[in-house]
């Protein structure tokens, strides 16, 4: 029963955010602020993790396939496809669930506890529209390019690691172009849009309805991270099931 209560309240929050903005300029300003916070603010952590994940993938497969008859260029092929289809969207999704999820839930929770959300409502501003919608839209706009960048950095990390392992750059590049299916990029984009929506909306829900004090803000942030991480993995499976 509790699930239906939360799901119903989540749906109502999503419905209420669709209203005519009181001032388009203020809303777009908030949208760009959120895009900056979510995208630029997560650039370093996503970049560093992707670089190393790509490098580890290349090393791991080089090690495992080194004594077999697999051609060297397969390392480039494997790194490319694992990064594009799985590692870039899913790992970045999990990283963003941690960073953005806790940040958004904490921000909205603090606003709720300190009555800033009530203040907006009293002024005649739709708090769901002004606070929730720019966060969700901002995530949907900025997360896909972030994940494309993540995939590129992962492939570059794999290149550096493979070269260091003794695989020739020419072979790695040959692998990158080998049997490339552009549909994999579509899968990555679909995943990134779904993950962005899930991470932002779950975090907004957790933060927006916080009751109590500072301790409850912490709990809401934790819930936001846990639920959005589980949903990212779950929908990763669903998209894979449907699209591959």
């Amino acid at each position: 029963m509790k699930f239906f209560y939360h799901f119903g309240r989540y749906v109502l929050m999503m419905r209420d955010m669709f209203s005519i903005p009181e001032n388009y300029r203020m809303y777009s300003k908030e949208l760009f602020r959120q895009m900056n916070g979510i995208g630029i603010g997560s650039l370093i952590i996503v970049g560093v993790i992707s670089l190393f994940v790509g490098a580890v993938t290349a090393l791991q497969f080089s090690y495992q396939l080194g004594s077999t008859f697999f051609p060297e260029y397969m390392i480039g092929f494997i790194v490319r496809d694992t990064m594009i289809i799985e590692l870039a969207p899913t790992l970045s999704g999990l990283v963003l669930a941690g960073k953005v999820g806790s940040n958004v839930a904490g921000e909205l929770g603090t606003m709720r506890i300190s009555e800033q959300i009530d203040a907006l409502e009293i002024m005649g501003v739709n708090p769901q529209g002004y606070l929730v919608m720019p966060k969700i839209l901002g995530a949907i706009f900025i997360v896909p390019p972030l994940i494309v960048l993540s995939a590129m950095l992962g492939i570059f990390g794999g290149y550096l690691a493979a070269e260091n392992y003794g695989i020739s750059p020419a072979n790695y590049q040959k692998g990158l172009l080998y049997l490339f299916d552009p549909f994999n990029v579509v899968i990555m984009t679909v995943k990134s849009v779904i993950f962005a929506f899930l991470i932002a909306s779950v975090a907004c829900y957790q933060g927006f309805f916080v009751k109590g004090g500072a301790l409850d803000i912490g709990k809401a942030s934790t819930r936001a991270v846990v639920f959005s991480s589980i949903l990212v993995i779950f929908f990763d499976y669903i998209v894979a099931l449907v699209m591959t």
């Binding site: 800033q116 203040a119 009293i122 005649g124």
Partner: peptide, 14 residues
């Protein structure tokens, strides 16, 4: 509500 002003206990400044 556009005609209402409210001062909150904790000020509720952004």
């Amino acid at each position: 509500r556009t005609k209402i002003g409210m001062l909150f206990q904790g000020s509720a400044l952004f």
